[in-house]
Design a protein around this nucleic acid. Sequence first.
DNA 1: CCTATCTCTTA
DNA 2: GTAAGAGATAGGT
Length: 981
Amino acid sequence: MKKGDHLFLVDGSGYIFRAYHALPPLTRKSDGLPVGAVSGFCNMLWKLLSEARDTSVGVTPTHFAVIFDYSSKTFRNELYPEYKANRSAPPEDLVPQFAVIREATRAFDLPCIEMEGFEADDLIATYARLAREAGADVTVISSDKDLMQLVGPQVSMYDSMKDRQIGVPEVIEKWGVPPEKMIDLQALTGDSVDNVPGIPGIGPKTAAQLIEEFGDLDTLLERAGEIKQNKRRENIIEFADKARISRELVRLKDDVEVTEKLDELVLNPLDGPKLVAFLKGMEFTSLTRRVAEATETDASAVDAAEVAVDAAAEMRGPDLDPGKAGKAGASGTSGKGDDTPQGLAKRRAEATASAKIDTSAYETLRDIDQLKAWCAMARERGLVAFDTETTSLDAMQAELVGFSLALPETAPDTGDLMVRACYAPLMHSNGAGDLLGGGGAQAGQMPMQEALSELKALLEDPAVLKIGQNLKYDMLVMAQHGISIESFDDTMLLSYVLEAGAGGHGMDSLSERWLGHTTIGYKDVTGSGKNAIPFAEVQIDKATAYAAEDAEVTLRLWHVLKPRLVADGVASVYERLERPLAPVLMRMEKHGIRVDRQILSRLSGELAQGAAALEAEIQELAGENFNVGSPRQLGEILFDKMSLPGGTKTKTGQWSTTAQALEDLAAAGHELPRKIVDWRQLTKLKSTYTDALPGFINPETKRVHTSFAMAATTTGRLSSSDPNIQNIPVRTAAGRKIRTAFIAEPGNVLISADYSQIELRVLAHVAHIPQLTQAFADGVDIHAMTASEMFGVPIEGMPSDVRRRAKAINFGIIYGISAFGLANQLGIERSEAGEYIRKYFERFPGIKDYMEATKAEAKENGYVTTIFGRRAHYPEIRSSNPQVRAFNERAAINAPIQGSAADIIRRAMVRMEPALEKAGKKARMLLQVHDELIFETAEADAGSIIPVIVEVMENAAMPAVDMAVPLKVDARAALNWDEAH
DNA sequence: CCTATCTCTTA
DNA sequence: GTAAGAGATAGGT
């Protein structure tokens, strides 16, 4: 930037609030998204930019930036904890607009700048100073008096709503003091909106007069005794300290270490189609037309952009209200009269939890008319809790035994929530195999088909919200009967979004936690162990108490948890990453993957042979027969009997026989440990995979249907079980053979598409590491680049060991590195590992900053956040036990990285089916392995489908987050998983 | 029969 | 150093 340049700085946050209050309320897009403030903001930007192109107007910007508040927690809160403490929460319909306005800024191709710990005003002050020092002129687009201290010969302000220029004369005219005295003036008057104290009884007029008389604040405070008016004199003397604090609060910080440099703010020509796409998506018809004309864009040829209601704004929503949010969340008061989302959520929780649950009051639906009556009531209410009872935990093999419903009612006297619940038994039978014959249906059950057709009408009615706990399971059960569940909420997912890491999300623990109610256990009705009976054989009255209670508890949980979604600012995580994924995963599980029984059986035989041969050799070398699979017996043989050196003990005092320990012994020339390692590999592969997998082949579908758990991990990853397909071997040749058993149907192929280095890319983005960002932009080998930076070795011809070390360090960083862990991984001394880490931090100082900031955030809030707003809770990070604490710190450092990557692939999965549909190709998504998606499709279609898959995956973060680093996806098709991967 | 411990597989 | 699930053994009930 140079003399003659002109920088425009838009006070985005200030503008949002002004536009919101100035414009007619309740301007909404057709999908209900409130967009009034967005509309005002876009019109303002367009006006500024189109005038900028009109050279007849005097002022034309060469550089441009829009600045936002990041959160209200700034250095000012350290100075004065009450700062902005009386702010009320932003209006509910404004909250979602914060994110959209950032999106709008990007659509205009303008830099969108915000920084944690600083207000927009500080960033504006900093850029204004930098530009001034470069000799350029500055216009601040705002009318906020807090910014008037910046006005001077090179800096002026512009009130875009009143179309008014604010220079030095205007400041003097309005406030009676020149801009440089504005700080002193505000120190005296204070600010009730921001809770800046000032001096009581002094307003702008008196303040200006005092400053005129004494020159500045310090002089005034020194000579306050000279003031004639008694009360005024006393107040100034008494509250002198408050005035000094106030001065520091209103003084803008103009030396923030900003990341975007001035030259990056240069104003580029508008990208017409991009902006038109956004405006079209927002349904701003007249602005769309104006922009299309001015940029010569054919609006009809541009697809409307998806509008982001992203997490970032919701994250900040409650932050804007530290006072009330904090009080409502933490104090024990009932929050009566508190109309913030936090207050409402709290009142709802208290009212719901205080109610008694009576499991003897449930209705059993015996005939179809009773069911019809309940369905009619559900339609009237528009919402119903629903739960299925089945014969199996495996939803693919489960038979429907009955279902329960629960409806909300309002108590006439107190207005509290009351719940009516019922159970409809469908397939209960008498115990089979006893002397009386048994096996017949229990009396008083309605015909299955009629019941199902009533149920279908209810579940598929989008006007009735279905509430369930782990509804993916019920969806799968109902899908077997050709029934889908159309609009729904899931209490398990609500709980997961609200408090992943803070406790379990099963119904029993949720009921204890939120309702203080202990539910009837499944085992209480079925018995356990060898006395257990199938649920279908449970007496109907007992089943009614159990099943209807589940529906009631689910409904009550929903009443408690759903309002907290908005109160806690995590609604978009639920709406975009959790709820829409449930039916997607349901279909993946339902489809399953074909597994070749013959291949596994052959492998089992080979493995058995190999293991048997090794076992014989092992017994021979050991000189006795022992259980090779028993670590305890093995440890005694190796370290007591044979007295091999270097043995270590586990925490329970047993000899450690880990693969690493055995490898070390093998390296020292001992034959036995090597054979143990080999034997373990073979038996592991056999027992866990080749023997176990065939047992998961569904007899009906002949395919394997894993179960994906959506609420199992703290970070947002999925987990897989029954069988776990996320740990199928890949690293060794022997292990990979197991993957060859995962095959496509004849005529089909499997496609595997996986993200390349997604976690390191996320790290580069969240920690703002320029070298990493550049390396990914250039597509260079990231580990080699790291090695080159650290060890000064050129990338060309780098020894593989140097790269290996750098790779271990990169992974270590993601895992919250410790010298101990890195030393272990690389087999080097801890001191050497510590030296590597020191060097790494020296070369990439941003990483250290990121780690410290993340730890501090976790300690402060009890949780950390992904780039999409998902929270991972670490309550034990404040533990007094240093080991526990350190472990939680590492986990907290890892969670935003692992979790953001998990969010990205979730977004891809949610968008994948519509994208494939739109491309007109039939392809089924089958599996997810953290950074990889597996599909099956007709062989002839693979070539045309791969680009669609890659496109969806690589753009999955957009538009909610515009990553600083490109995402890269590799995809391949083959007849089996091993070759596709 | 249930649970804890140890080990090993994946990203 | 992060995140998972699962099998075998051993020891309690």
